[in-house]
């Protein structure tokens, strides 16, 4: 990795499974539930205003996580339902599917949550989310003008994200 102008992102992006563009939208939340980034590519239906929508999404993920932690059939000691869990603690989930969309979810060890909504018949996107996290590290965290915890406004990140998301199916 070069110090300046290095554009190689490790690891290399997972190969696209098919060409197409069926991503609906993406959210990035930090550990305290602030929406750092919201990108929308194809969303015909808006039921709520943006702020309410972000809150509802974060609440859904938070509750689903406590549900999966409580339901985990492989561990005997699961604690109480609804007690907040640290990132990486307890049984989490990586995606859910409805008849109209698929939501893929990743939580980093620092508690940042990356959420990608795609077409319901999309395959496993865990590697893609990791790659998006790498993009975030390269273009946002390493940007000296970016203050942690504030909404992301980095053109380079947005363009490379758009480009990458268009390539996944």
């Amino acid at each position: 990795m070069q110090f300046f102008g290095g554009s190689d992102i490790s690891p290399s992006p997972p190969p696209p499974t098919a060409s197409g563009h069926n991503a609906h939208m993406m959210y990035i939340f930090n550990r305290s539930g602030i929406c750092l980034l919201y990108r929308e590519w194809n969303r015909p239906l808006h039921t709520l205003n943006a702020q309410q929508d972000h809150k509802l999404m974060f609440g859904l993920l938070f509750s689903l996580k406590s549900l999966t932690a409580k339901m985990d059939p492989t561990s005997a000691d699961k604690g109480n339902l609804g007690v907040p869990q640290l990132p990486g603690q307890g049984c989490s989930f990586h995606s859910f599917r409805t008849n109209t969309y698929k939501l893929s979810f990743m939580e980093t060890p620092s508690g940042m949550k990356i959420i990608l909504l795609t077409h319901p018949r999309t395959g496993d996107l865990r590697e893609s989310l990791k790659y998006i996290y790498n993009l975030y590290v390269e273009y946002v965290v390493k940007n000296p003008l970016y203050a942690p915890g504030t909404p992301i406004r980095c053109d380079l990140f947005n363009t490379s994200l758009d480009q990458y998301v268009r390539s996944i199916s």
Binding site: L60, T68, P73, F93, S95, R97, N99, Y101
Partner: peptide, 27 residues
């Protein structure tokens, strides 16, 4: 029950009928 209902509200397109499959780490 409530997560199922909320997932319908967050749908990007019309006609969502809630979560059909949830893939957790262990189940």
């Amino acid at each position: 029950h409530s997560m199922h209902a909320i997932s319908q509200q967050l749908s990007p397109t019309v006609g969502c009928s809630g979560i059909e499959l949830l893939e957790a780490d262990t189940f």
